[in-house]
């Protein structure tokens, strides 16, 4: 509860923030602060400088225009209560409503969340299942990264030291049925396992399915095996079981265990929550 000393700059423009980032190697970007400040409080992070981008209002807000453009500073609560998000991607509404608690959701931002890349966080799993695109800005201009290439490892992303996450673009998934199912850690309330599915139905048959899993692994991952097992089926029990088996096989070697949930349990729960997610999606 006593952060170490740091210099503090409040950026008034994106360019000013980028300039500070470029000129200060040990600077950290402060948005809502809900990943960074707990680390400062425990002195697990002791940056020399914080660049507060919290007032860059043009990075805040949600635009629905073919796809969703969610500004990096948009809070979880804003996403949770957005009718546009509910319409475009129900699973994203569901996932952000499970982040932290109401107070955390009022301050924590989607940009800060993904830049932190906590493997047990909820939104990355949904973004991955929905083929989202991350918008970044650096001194040389803007670029976009498909979310598949954004998360590199535990707490590691493709954001370069002199770049900012400016927004997240989520495709319009309203022609899919989407859901996010989560097994919540009883202490942290992070995901022990979180599974997001987006299924496109053609009558009673699944045309294709997107499946992503988070919580159990160093970073959220898509499951090609589960997706293949679901495509072309009626999503009956046999298909769900096959998808669950495929998912478990894919992750088994990489699953992270902890005191609460050992590896074998997490692996099995990936299968269980995949099935739950699909059933929820179909019921939606």
């Amino acid at each position: 509860m006593r952060p170490g000393k740091f210099a503090y700059h409040r950026a008034e423009t994106i360019d000013a923030a980028l300039e500070l980032l470029t000129n200060n190697e040990d600077a950290k970007v402060l948005a809502g602060g809900h990943s960074l400040i707990p680390a400062l409080n425990l002195r697990l992070a002791q940056p020399e400088m914080l660049i507060d981008i919290g007032r860059l209002e043009n990075l805040r807000g949600i635009q629905a225009n073919g796809s969703l453009m969610i500004g990096a500073l948009t809070t979880h609560a804003q996403i949770e209560t957005s009718a546009a998000v509910q319409q475009y991607c129900r699973a994203l509404s569901a996932a952000v409503s499970k982040v932290g608690d109401p107070m955390v959701r009022n301050r924590g931002t989607i940009g800060g969340n993904i830049a932190h890349a906590d493997p047990a966080s909820d939104p990355p799993t949904v973004l991955l299942a929905c083929d989202s695109i991350i918008h970044l800005q650096g001194p040389d201009g803007t670029r976009t990264v498909p979310v598949q290439d954004f998360f590199l490892d535990l707490f590691t992303t493709d954001v370069q030291p002199n770049e900012l996450v400016t927004g997240i673009e989520v495709p319009n998934m309203s022609d899919h049925k989407t859901a996010y199912a989560k097994l919540t850690h009883p202490a942290s309330h992070y995901a022990v396992v979180g599974v997001c599915v987006a299924v496109k139905m053609d009558g009673d048959t699944c045309d294709h399915a997107h499946v992503a899993i988070g919580g159990a692994l160093p970073k959220a991952m898509r499951s090609p095996g589960a997706e293949a097992a679901l495509a072309g089926t009626t999503l009956d029990d046999a298909a769900l079981n096959a998808a669950a088996e495929a998912l478990m096989d894919e992750i088994r070697a990489e699953v992270m265990g902890d005191v609460y949930a050992p590896e074998a349990y997490r692996t099995a729960m990936a299968g269980v929550y995949l099935k739950r997610a699909i059933r929820q999606a179909l019921a939606s």
Partner: peptide, 11 residues
């Protein structure tokens, strides 16, 4: 102590 915070110890 692996359960040294409320992140790890389930109150």
């Amino acid at each position: 102590l692996l359960t040294g915070s409320m992140m790890d110890y389930a109150v």
